[in-house]
Design a binder for these strands. Structure first.
Lengths: 363, 363
DNA sequence: CTGTTAGCGCGTTCAG
DNA sequence: CTGAACGCGCTAACAG
């Protein structure tokens, strides 16, 4: 009688006491029932579930978190949500997290290490149970500071040593090799590669994979065709223009991400060169938009959903060890998606091709 | 002594008691200081802040939420995160929310009303303080059920009546008129419009705005050039193909969203028609990718950041009435962004143009 | 197997 | 203006 459980509306979230009263059991039994503790008498459990149903009861997450110390909240840190790579990752992360009873908190760092710290700070204040750092590149000092926190963390490619940390390993080589072989089969022998910023581990790994795959098919790329880009459209345009200006152009280009590849497409379009007739182009990431470019872009796909799934499972293995077996390693594959930006190698020498393509299409 | 405040690590989040002890005040004073209650003696407040700083204390969000009934969590419901329209909206929402001391919970409905209910359900269980429903279209029955909840809600274009609900009104007309006028100035008189699904309020509003703007400049669109699309690339391709096949083609097309416009670009590319030489195309939304299409797409922009800002402020006005003045209405503008997909109207009759464009470019 | 009890960390009455 | 005490809704010991 002392505390009124219904507001003026007659509406009110019933609490655990209300359920207990209606089911004629103690609140402890209700709690156990909710949490699937197996030692509850089935008959009582039955009554409890019935009461819960009748009252429309749902447990108060806040209270639960406060007392148990576990919020069932997972943090997800990405570089930039407007980068088309990430939304699918987020979607996958959300799906798998919700499946496992977690809610997610997202933050973007915008490539700013300081902002990353703020993100993590905010997440810790919200008492997240674990954080996935999916930024593909993180400053070493920050990594070290993170390692101090006693909270499960999962990274891509690299992570600090520690029992609470997991790494998702991406097999860049597999898909990139498929790309190189695809080009080789089409008759390309002059293949260039525009990398990402080489201070990023992921960019380095992609370039290394390319070189290894080239070597495997007995091709040695010309140094002029091995350039560093910056993973942006503008970078792609500018680097591709340099390659074209260097006189001796390749017949195919692979890139470290799709934005760069789209830049390449733009640079080629400007000179009037035709894709895939004059040049073949292969991107990396296979962002959603790759299917919408002109022509649709052949690209090496790294499954964002798989990446996301791995990340959630890695965290879950730390948090709910009983649920999953806890794999020691988390691996993600890459594979080639062939669309229309790749075709048979042109047989003309590149000099002629360059001359003809002049501004041939603009009038 | 009874409760140990430090774990084995020596690390431990200090609690309010620790601060109170160090500052030689009571926990109540600490609480008041944190919450900026003005009745605290400045000297004491000083000591408290110092103690907080020394201990690196930060209040426990869970506990705070439990006792105050306010989580400082905002829900954001969108249609589909992989739809390029939404990421920027999310970014803006996050920024403004964080500025105002809120964290956000995001969910996508994937255009599934049932999923929307689940989303809201989950959010309510997490005790969000308010929800922004930014899906551009919501089933009427769901809207009604939402209206029962006593929680602030904000919608785009339409919303139920009620003191807790706000609507963000988008001025579709302004930008669309700019688009029509832009085309008119370029000499276009044969202008078509591909709408979105007409059961969506936002799609209807855009079409109405187009018709009104056309009327204003004294143009009457041919019924064949007024078609219903579905806001997808494929829809754009298919509808544009129909328009081209109908024999008498317009010289310019406006669309209800950018994906449709990109579909139009693809359809034109396939027939060999050139943009903007033969056709002008204007999109709507001005998604990020609009600047990366070939050619870059002229588009009517609706600022996602502004939309997001409005949404957060609308909720905040309900939640922290003292902070902002609480505007009665929330409005968002649209404006034209001119890029390279629009140009002077071609002077040739469309039949000749269609003939010439055959497959002229593929050999 | 069940019920009782003691907090989780904090905001918020009330006396002083 | 300050501090002691209570309780938010729930879980986890413990005693029965």
């Amino acid at each position: 009688m002392s505390r009124a459980k219904r507001n003026t509306n007659g509406q009110s979230r019933p609490d655990i006491h209300a359920v207990a009263r209606l089911a004629r059991v103690s609140i402890a039994t209700v709690s156990r029932t909710i949490n699937n503790i197996s030692t509850v008498d089935p008959r009582l459990a039955q009554r409890v579930w019935k009461a819960i149903d009748e009252l429309g009861y749902s447990p108060n997450t806040q209270a639960r978190a406060l007392v148990s110390g576990r919020s069932r909240l997972l943090g997800l840190i990405i570089s930039e949500i407007t980068n088309p790579f990430f939304p699918e990752l987020i979607q996958g992360f959300e799906d798998v997290a919700v499946e496992n009873g977690y809610e997610i908190l997202i933050s973007s760092t915008n490539y700013d290490p300081q902002r990353m710290e703020l993100c993590i700070q905010r997440m810790l204040e919200r008492k997240v149970d674990g954080v996935a750092v999916m930024t593909f590149g993180i400053e070493a000092p920050l990594l070290d500071r993170l390692a101090q926190r006693d909270i499960p963390l999962v990274f891509v490619d690299v992570s600090p040593k520690g029992p609470l940390f997991s790494t998702i390993e991406v097999d860049y080589f597999h898909g990139i090799r498929e790309g190189v072989q695809h080009l080789a089969v089409l008759g390309h022998r002059r293949i260039g590669f525009i990398s990402g910023p080489l201070h990023l581990h992921s960019a380095l790994a992609r370039k290394a994979a390319f070189l290894r795959a080239m070597d495997e098919v007995g091709l040695a790329p010309h140094p002029d065709w091995l350039r560093e880009g910056d993973h942006t459209l503008e970078g792609g345009i500018s680097v591709m223009s340099q390659i074209l200006a260097s006189g001796d152009a390749p017949t195919a280009i692979m890139t470290s991400n799709d934005m760069t590849a789209i830049g390449v497409l733009h640079a080629l379009y400007r000179t009037g060169a035709r894709v895939p007739d004059d040049f073949s182009v292969i991107g990396f990431d296979d962002i959603n938009f790759a299917q919408f470019t002109l022509p649709p872009l052949t690209s090496v796909q790294m499954s964002r959903r798989e990446l996301a799934r791995c990340a959630v499972l890695a965290l879950r293995d730390h948090l709910d060890p009983q649920v999953g077996p806890g794999r020691p390693r988390y691996k993600v594959q890459t594979r080639l998606t062939v669309r229309q930006s790749t075709g048979l190698a042109s047989q003309e020498p590149s000099s002629k091709r360059a001359a003809r393509s002049g501004r041939s299409r603009t009038k």
